[in-house]
Design a protein around this nucleic acid. Structure first.
Lengths: 150, 150
DNA sequence: ACAAAATAGGTGTATATACTCCTAAGTAAT
DNA sequence: ATTACTTAGGAGTATATACACCTATTTTGT
């Protein structure tokens, strides 16, 4: 019994949107994480700190929605930040909720990380060209909204 | 001491290439994983099976390179496939190497998964439009090659 | 032939991701 | 007021990801 899959079918799978997006995400993550390494922050953590700092005080579920991230994923991603004292998680007025805020330590870490992020971001955008990155970012947004409506 | 970060600095971070790529990757992964769920395969696993099936017999490091994936990540990603008997890992002629091959079980799983993948892929491409996906895929490839040359 | 260098790969550890199932607390129906 | 429903969130489990460090094997320089 030879396989029933046509030899021409499998190469098509290299066009997989999920594979190509994940691959690109892995690649840039390595680049950004390396750039942020002196701060001890991963890019995921940096992004969370930025969001928390901007929002002031935010519920867990809301923060998860913004990142198109599962709520339970966010809970786990907050752990290392809390352990390092960069954020605080306290019960909200609605006693079901938990509110996340950034600490002074967190602000300081953010100040330290910001110039490193700016450098690697500028480098990536420059090498892609600003136009290409603009259209790419729009496309990525389209992908996200497409999935949200599923 | 009020924070020294200009109020206009943080919103710029929402343009982060890493954040936007990871976010989009999370979104599509949820879509594809859901589509493949009846097979018990995650999209990552499906992609690996496709690659292994196409390449016939491939060394661990080579397979990792193709996916722009850390070698040790691949090692761990192969584990669930091996445990389910979908692939085999055997020592190569060069006794340092390990060669990965797909099993009959793996071929069968692939046959089962292929139409489900085709459906979700076609759906995504259609909703994005073929043109947009084409340009997007080219952009993603550009990102990967950009990072590889760092 | 043998020591040094290079190569292939795995383990330990830590983070990232999400599904299923569970508890607690608020809200609505009667 | 009490029950039913809904909402917010965590815990258990499993996969995904990669860095630092380790071992084993091959290649290379002499």
């Amino acid at each position: 019994m030879d396989h029933k899959i046509d030899r021409l079918e499998l190469p098509k799978c290299m066009d997989c949107a999920c594979f190509n997006l994940r691959k690109a995400a892995r690649a840039v993550t390595q680049l950004y994480d390396k750039a942020l390494r002196p701060t001890g922050l991963r890019t995921t953590q940096f992004t969370l700190l930025v969001g928390i700092s901007m929002l002031g005080a935010v519920r867990v579920t809301r923060l998860a929605e913004i990142g198109v991230m599962d709520r339970t994923t966010l809970t786990r991603n907050l752990k290392p930040l809390e352990r390092r004292g960069l954020i605080q998680i306290t019960p909200g007025n609605d006693h079901r909720t938990r509110v996340v805020t950034i600490t002074d330590e967190g602000q300081k870490a953010l100040e330290q990380a910001l110039p490193l992020w700016k450098k690697v971001q500028a480098d990536v955008v420059k090498r892609l060209s600003q136009e290409r990155w603009n259209s790419m970012r729009a496309d990525l947004g389209e992908v996200v909204s497409l999935v949200s409506k599923s």
